[in-house]
Nucleic acid binder design. Structure first.
Lengths: 131, 131
DNA sequence: GTACCCTCCGTACATAGGTACGGAGTCAAG
DNA sequence: CTTGACTCCGTACCTATGTACGGAGGGTAC
């Protein structure tokens, strides 16, 4: 008996939970699957690809909303839209890096201050946050 | 009549909403204020400092939970705890920067590919996410 | 055929950090 | 004294991304 791609097997193959598949379906990221036997969802091999696509995109910082957009965009003349989406996301990531870098510097400063002038009574870190 | 520091004025002075002050109070970030006139909260000038402290700490990536910790820690012998907290947060921020940097590189790659080998039929960005 | 796992569904819960609502009471200015 | 703005409270709601629950029914391996 050729083992059917049930929701559990899809989830397993894609490395997510069953509930996540159902959630993606409700969210429109996965199409309504066929249900040949008494209501059980049955998937195709490419659905594994699709879920992996979702996870990979997420890891790059795309939201599920973004990804729903990406999934509608695969095809010839829409490539520049996709390009724009990616470029946009790139800029966001670059901004986030800049912001985090200045946070990092502030934290380093705080930690260094604390190690150097460690007078009794007040903590320089707390002081620097109050000023 | 010396104008009292009501919740609205505190919120205004600190640049947040009234509901946010109430929320911080419930969360234990602000102490129960005095209520001299028929239940209205009355604050002191230093409460403005305290709210600003919270916002500044947030901007450095501390969660409200962390900040509640920081606020309990101002004082002599607790400075090394604070130092540890800040150091910890520093490491987290550094890790986050590393992760975002590799995301940035992947996105740059995607965008560049898209600009170079722009064959019809499939979008290289979509392709790279599927592989 | 029986035991056990799987799937179905809708809904509630989770995190974090607020924001909004509604009705009643109160303060302050004119 | 009136009017309008402010405050009170508890609770519900919000975004994003899932996770958990519970009871009923179905599939499958032995």
């Amino acid at each position: 008996m050729k083992s059917r791609m049930t929701i559990g097997r899809l989830a397993e193959a894609a490395g997510v939970g069953v509930e996540t598949i159902r959630f993606y379906q409700r969210a429109g990221l996965l199409p309504e699957p066929k249900r040949p036997l008494s209501g059980y969802r049955e998937y195709a091999a490419e659905d594994v690809q699709r879920v992996r696509f979702i996870k990979r995109s997420q890891a790059l910082g795309f939201s599920l909303h973004d990804i729903a957009g990406l999934l509608k965009l695969d095809g010839p003349q829409t490539c520049n839209l996709t390009h724009e989406l990616a470029l946009n996301k790139l800029h966001l990531v670059e901004e986030k890096i800049v912001a985090l870098t200045s946070i990092r510097d502030a934290l380093r400063q705080m930690v260094r201050q604390c190690e150097l002038k460690h007078k009794r009574g007040t903590c320089p870190i707390i002081q620097s946050l109050i000023d």
